[in-house]
Amino acid sequence: MRDRIEIYDVLLVVTLIGAAWRALFGKDAFSATVFFIVYGLLMAMAWVQLDAIDVALAEACVGAGLTGALLIGAVRQFERAPGARALRRTMGLRASIGALSLLALAGLTASLFEIENRRSPVPPLVERSLGDSGSAHPVTAMLLNFRAFDTWLEIGVLLIASLAAISIHRLYDPSPIEGRASTAPTRPRLQIQSQTQPWIMARTLLPLLILVGGAMLWFGSHAPGGAFQSGALIGAAGILLQIAGGRSALRLSSLRTRSLLSLGFSSFWLMAAGALLAGGRILEYPPASAGAAILALEAAATLSIALTLNVMYACSRPWGPEP
């Protein structure tokens, strides 16, 4: 939007580096976590300056919001552990690590000047074919049409990661009820305490999160927004419910959970197979129905992403979800 650096950019960058410094080198694990959340927030502001509002949205939802909630929920069990403040003490070791990092920094910065005047041929191509893509927004067209294969595999990564988290959680508690009793207190199956602050806040926020999430999915067809941001917001609604309602909000072994987890991946699979059977290339939509295909894929991906984030959150909490 602007092509010059202003005082605002300089202030933003200084604050960003300061937050990163405290997150990386602060002594106390808790304040490092808070600075990490601030770092995510400022990163989203930097994306606005780079004219990438889609990324700013993703960073705000996922980076600052969900990662923040994950880390704040987890830091408690690590901060008092022995070694939470430990650094490598040997000066020689520190110096050599520092020298290597500086070397990497210098190399990267030099490459920056090297590539400064190059230009990519992609943006003009995108502009030319945007009409046939089924989406009026270039980033959505890129994610769900031009490079849909990447997005498919990325959803596959999410699916694998959530299955891995479930497996670790399962190994952790081989016999669900007796096993947990020794490691964590037994909690009632449905523990919604209607007077607690989390529950009051959840009741106010849930409709808002779902509404904004749904709107974000729809925005993706013509403006910044789309499946990832929407999935993160709806996922946040579910996480809120988990916090307010105890661990019973999610059942990892149910068929419903598992089929919903793989819904995004299998929708892409079906779309790819359908395109191949119809004589086209993989994930090639007919231009006339590309808009509908993109929306369908995005809706499926949104649900899967939202549930994946919930499963991941549940499995990394100090006490696990219902097995």
Binding site: I37, A60, A232, A244
Partner: peptide, 9 residues
């Protein structure tokens, strides 16, 4: 919408 999530967590 998401700032509150961190606070609640």
């Amino acid at each position: 919408a998401l700032a509150t999530l961190t606070t609640i967590a």
